[in-house]
């Protein structure tokens, strides 16, 4: 099996990792970089708990080969908060009860980030569509929608 020298940016930091061809991006993040905030609920694209942003767009990191991420920028949940302060999306999830078991949360928050980066004040429908690849078994999603909506409000007010 071939090995590859993979250069990528993870949470703003340039990384270089030697990885075998069959390594997924999820494995690279979790095992090689110890970024275990990226979860794996299925390994086959069905649940979205492994969602990370690849050049700003949400992807299932369980279905991306590490080699395919070569030369790209990855944002994981660990890269969202600035220092001690939570990102407004994280803050809204915490305050409004968008988190129960928390297993879906990193993926949810990253999908929400990708949405809010493009659409400042999304409608309910836009929020639901943007998060439709992230399953949650605990919350029934209502408080997640409310949290994203509130985060949008706060972000567009420029409040942190």
């Amino acid at each position: 099996m071939s090995s590859h020298r993979i250069r990528l940016t993870v949470n703003g930091v340039a990384r270089e990792i030697l990885a075998p061809a069959n390594r997924t991006l999820a494995q690279l993040l979790r095992e090689d970089l110890g970024l275990t905030g990226t979860k794996q609920g299925c390994g086959e694209g069905d649940c979205g708990s492994c969602t990370v942003l690849l050049d700003g767009e949400p992807v299932n990191s369980c279905l991306v080969l590490a080699v395919q991420a070569h030369g790209h920028e990855v944002l994981t949940i660990e890269g969202l908060a600035q220092g001690r302060e939570l990102h407004p999306i994280q803050q809204a999830f915490v305050e409004l009860g968008g988190i129960q078991c928390g297993f879906c949360t990193p993926g949810m928050i990253l999908s929400a980030k990708a949405l809010l980066d493009k659409t400042k004040r999304p409608s309910q429908e836009q929020i639901r569509r943007a998060l439709s690849g992230n399953l949650c078994r605990c919350t029934g999603y209502q408080k997640i929608v409310e949290a994203v909506s509130e985060a949008g409000r706060r972000l567009s007010r420029g409040r942190r």
Binding site: G45, L54, P58, V59, N60, S111, S132, G133, N134
Partner: peptide, 9 residues
């Protein structure tokens, strides 16, 4: 098709 994450790939 699929989900946003799938559609991106």
């Amino acid at each position: 098709l699929g989900s946003p994450q799938v559609r991106n790939r």
